[in-house]
Amino acid sequence: MIDIQVFAGLKDYFPATFNMEQVKSVADLKSCLEQQQPHSANLLSLSRFAVNEHFVSLEHPLNNHDKVAILPPASGG
């Protein structure tokens, strides 16, 4: 089970927190989410991914109990 947390505009498409199973990598997770919510694809493609509070690339593998945060482009300040 992978724990997923999304922020800002991604909450228009997904719950703020949810779980997924059988996703092997960040790229795999991203394509699953795009299939679930095709309109989220643009924002997902602009977003950064963090696993266990570290920024990671799309190739990063996912393991059971990993905590993934999906971070749209920043708009603080």
């Binding site: 950064r48 920043a74 708009s75 300040g77």
Partner: peptide, 9 residues
């Protein structure tokens, strides 16, 4: 900070 820090308005 504006470009990189995960904070949203």
């Amino acid at each position: 900070v504006k470009a990189e820090v995960p904070i949203w308005k």
